[in-house]
Design a binder for these strands. Structure first.
Lengths: 142, 142
DNA sequence: TATTGTTATACTCTATAACTATA
DNA sequence: TATAGTTATAGAGTATAACAATA
């Protein structure tokens, strides 16, 4: 067999969305390796960055992570001294999550790296096309 | 905490592409459950459909599956009598994969279901927007 | 030597049940 | 009775090394 016909799969939106996501995530893994951050770690730290005091439960529901699977990640980030846990003042069940000074510094760099990486991933798109792509993707999942 | 700010993550192309892919795959899982086909099974069967005689190695490189992980899938599809293995006429190492009559019938239905499901997933998009989205996604990974 | 298909196995990711402390 | 966080554990998905058969 000489050449594989992939035209049917390429006609599917789901296939294309997944291929594009895998492409960008692959680039993410390479560039973020220096910070030892997987996409999920970056997402967690980013939500804590922009929502200081956020709880584990809230992270879980926003990022579609099951609570038992977040525990280890949070412990690891705390051991790396990137985040701090502060008990909620009035609700004894809740522990608020905050970035440490080290975490703030790391995320400042990591978010810049993410921006650069995304610019590279979208280098074949014009600024207008990139905005259009974002808007159409959001129409799919919103 | 009242409301979570997700605007930073939502400004990332990778995040949006992944969210959209997860949304469509979720719909896929529900609708394809009647055929007992996961996305990877559907992709494998679809490539065999449009490329009768394709080898395991070719499936692996097209779908980015590692050879050891394909073995079980192919065995299962053969046990379900959806595919047939035919030794290559001149190359004794290669086994060509083909759909059985049952497999052809199943895939005819499954590909129609995939089309319907994609139409529903993209229901908020105009025909033009949908074409644009596909084109832009392909620019990311090609 | 290189390639195809395969086995065994390890590692990661995701899912479920059940517990405790607090509300 | 419900919720937040946790533990233990099972299952699915993905990875590497190594082998036999064939080229």
């Amino acid at each position: 067999m000489q050449k594989i016909d992939t035209s049917y799969l390429e006609s599917l939106l789901g296939y294309n969305a997944r291929r594009a996501a895998v492409e960008i995530i692959g680039l993410f893994l390479k560039r973020m390796a220096v910070y030892d951050l997987r996409p999920v770690d970056f997402s967690v730290l980013s939500l804590i960055t922009h929502n200081p005091g956020i709880s584990s439960r809230q992270l879980c529901s926003e990022l579609n992570i099951l609570p038992p699977n977040l525990v280890g990640m949070i412990n690891t980030l705390e051991k790396r001294e990137l985040i701090l846990r502060k008990p909620h003042p009035s609700d004894g069940r809740v522990i608020g999550l905050h970035l440490s000074e080290i975490g703030i510094k790391l995320m400042k760099e990591a978010e810049q790296t993410a921006k650069d990486l995304e610019d590279d991933a979208a280098s074949k798109l014009t600024t207008t096309e990139r905005k259009t792509l974002m808007r159409l993707l959001q129409k799919i999942y919103n």
